[in-house]
Nucleic acid binder design. Structure first.
Lengths: 196, 196
DNA sequence: TCCATTCTTGACTGCCTCGTCCAGAACGGG
DNA sequence: CCCGTTCTGGACGAGGCAGTCAAGAATGGA
């Protein structure tokens, strides 16, 4: 009953996200986003609203994907909880170290640039951090039940520490720390987890 | 022999820094910086060059001050090294939590926005992280010699972990984590340091 | 006092960027 | 095969931006 959209929304959002991711929100130009997506500006504005709304959409989607990825990495039987935790922390360090484009993490970049100016960004960031922390808490608690981490520690506190270390690795990686440094941090964080 | 400058360079740089700090490099307008400093744009350009050079100057100065502050917090006799470390980590958490303006740390913000696009920013960030890490290493080593931290741990690795935790606290604070969460992270990080 | 020199101011330029708008295109129901 | 509706693409306008410039002001030495 009307002309259908000729583009895939997911692809367009990914292309837009890459623009924001590479150079930041303020520096990204709507014309470049239009060129990258292959859409005319009219279509872009018609489908997603203005630049801010488009950013919020890509930011929210990205954060949701991030949480899903962490969930996939950490979910599983209690017996392997510590091993999954270990693998995840090391994977984050390695991924950060080998990020050739040095774009870092969009969550970190968006939060640094806009949280405190844009309540919507801050809300998404807070929600995302909380979700990841909860996944970490579950995994730590699982490892405790499996007897791999000391039982009388508060899993939420250890998870908070691990979350801070993960975000710190990300921050240091963007600052140009060496792959060895990042891996060393990850290993040390895992090594200091209290064993039974 | 010529007209002298009517402004204090330090004050102007501080005012400019606050503009970049509040809204980021790309979003800061040279006209606003001029208004904030009280200078005309001509004086600003004459004294500091273009916007990028002005930013690099404020960024470098700020990082140097940051390193000095950490040095003042951590330097001292070996006997009190662990206590100074403890006080510093907790102070960072509290300062981040009570940052009403939620500007976060200029080092983090500048690095997130520009490192990877501007080699000069990346170099300053790397240098600053390395300097802080070295101060932490010295302090950890002092605490080890004083018998407050387990002797056979590599001080550099523990310092790397602490640096990551500090940067992580900063990142989470900008994301809106609660003061309690941040303090808990700091306390947990201190608690897991291996004792003799 | 006069002059060479450097500093100050803000108007100005030219480019860039967001967001709008409209003429035309693609669709599907009737 | 129409026709109402939605989508498309890019030209356009209005405002914003970084950086320049020229006219005048403040200084110290001669």
């Amino acid at each position: 009953m009307a002309r259908p959209r000729s583009f895939d929304e997911g692809e367009v959002l990914r292309a837009a996200r890459d623009q924001f991711w590479s150079i930041g929100y303020a520096a990204a130009r709507v014309d470049d986003i239009a060129a990258a997506t292959g859409l005319g500006k009219g279509s872009l504005y018609g489908a997603f609203g203005d630049k801010r709304q488009l950013f919020l959409r890509t930011f929210d989607d990205h954060c949701a994907e991030l949480v899903d990825a962490v969930r996939r990495a950490l979910d599983g039987p209690e017996a392997g909880a510590l091993e999954r935790l270990r693998a995840h922390v090391l994977a984050v360090a390695d991924a950060t170290a080998s990020d050739a484009s040095r774009r870092g993490c969009l969550l970190a970049k968006g939060t640094a640039e806009l949280s405190g100016q844009d309540p919507a960004v801050e809300a998404t960031a807070r929600r995302t951090f909380a979700a990841i922390e909860e996944l970490l808490t579950s995994c730590v608690a699982g490892a405790q039940r499996a007897g791999d981490i000391k039982q009388d520690e508060d899993p939420a506190r250890l998870a908070g520490l691990l979350l801070a270390v993960l975000r710190g690795i990300e921050a240091l990686g963007k600052g140009g720390s060496s792959p060895d440094s990042l891996r060393s941090i990850a290993e040390t964080a895992l090594a200091v987890l209290p064993r039974p």
